[in-house]
Design a protein around this nucleic acid. Sequence first.
DNA 1: TCCATGATTCGTTGTTTAACGAAGTGTCAT
DNA 2: ATGACACTTCGTTAAACAACGAATCATGGA
Lengths: 234, 234
Amino acid sequence: MDVMDSIDRTASKIAAAIGEPARARILYCLMDDRARTSTELSAVAEVGTSTASAHLHLLLKARLLKVVAQGRHRYYSLAGPEVGRILEGLSAIAGTMSPKFIPSTPNRLRAARSCYDHIAGSLGVTLHDRLLKLEWISKNGEGAAYAISPKGRAKLKEIGIEIVDLEGRRRHVACGCLDWSERRSHIGGSLGAAILSLAFRRKWLLRDLDGRGLTQTSLGRQEFRRCFGIEPSN
Amino acid sequence: MDVMDSIDRTASKIAAAIGEPARARILYCLMDDRARTSTELSAVAEVGTSTASAHLHLLLKARLLKVVAQGRHRYYSLAGPEVGRILEGLSAIAGTMSPKFIPSTPNRLRAARSCYDHIAGSLGVTLHDRLLKLEWISKNGEGAAYAISPKGRAKLKEIGIEIVDLEGRRRHVACGCLDWSERRSHIGGSLGAAILSLAFRRKWLLRDLDGRGLTQTSLGRQEFRRCFGIEPSN
DNA sequence: TCCATGATTCGTTGTTTAACGAAGTGTCAT
DNA sequence: ATGACACTTCGTTAAACAACGAATCATGGA
């Protein structure tokens, strides 16, 4: 009975965290699964940066948000899918409006882009998520680093990437790299570099004139699909 | 965009309603689907009756609770299953504890009892819910009254109850009657009376010595199951 | 009818907390 | 190094609101 009470109490704390208008605006803004910076969220919440900082701190403590520090930016995002579900549920009660009107997953896709020496943009994020889903890589590594599974090694070897060649250097073999425009992780580290270099070599991707943009060739579309099971997006 | 904002705002209001400790205690206490009075809930929330009244008013406005007036009592209960789901969801996030530990549906069953001239207690409630589920009765009637469906008439006739004989009197043919101990509706009106009288006549139920309690016979268990599909409870 | 009891409304008090600006910390660029 | 920028921490103020007791309304029983 005592345990139950404490659950109720923390549940109530969580509800209270959502129950403040400025914080609710922050949370619902983050429902598209993109990470945003403190200052951006202060604009969304329509409060000063210091106030937003306090709100974000509280939301972190309530385990509704998580944060990733990247340089002098701190990217905040929803702590997990359960949080999104709670928010959807509340909206569902709120309006007679059906939950499908809530701006959750559907998101405008952005073009591929390079980030230093690996693939960023929507393609980079898709690839990143896909490798995790396929369990070629897993989050078991230290920090933001990913571990490569035996299956991943085999499959990547088939494609033409030898993991052993990438190991033993100072650089991580694979790690999540937060994307400036997508605000989600894409695949970085020497594996990310190897994939981009492979894609250039095989003419899956062409470098744009501005040096950062990438264009996927029709061959590239086919090959990304064949190798990773990625549906042609745009 | 404006519509979205308003949804967020009311969602935030709902969360705020849950986010006050006293109100959270009230809500989680009501998760067993039983209606409770204002004074009882004030005890649960550990506040005075006037404070509880204010909280209950707010929860009504937030559409998290509904209320049924019965004499000088007002029975409060959760507004719907979505509310329970939200509360469960919050608890799920709150603890690492799994949602199944939340005291939602499983509830100690109470013995059958008579309420004036019809069946109350757990059996009465079960019967009430069953008749609705089978769609022999529906909530289309005025107020707390139920309408009897054609199917219901036919099935009840098979059992030995002629609805036409019950109609045209001042009394409702069927209506929900809030149970003092179960705090949930059982089946009242002349249909309720007819069922109890039938159960006595056929020795499905025996009146206890105290005059209010009812004992289900083994024949009764069989027959309630055969006629209404009610599983033998205790 | 009158009284007892459940429940709500009202007015007051005290606590909580959201908001801001100013000052402090850390990171990138020149 | 030094300035610019992103972000947080601190101290203060003002508004929101939960709590209570007293008064009021409503219902059921004597």
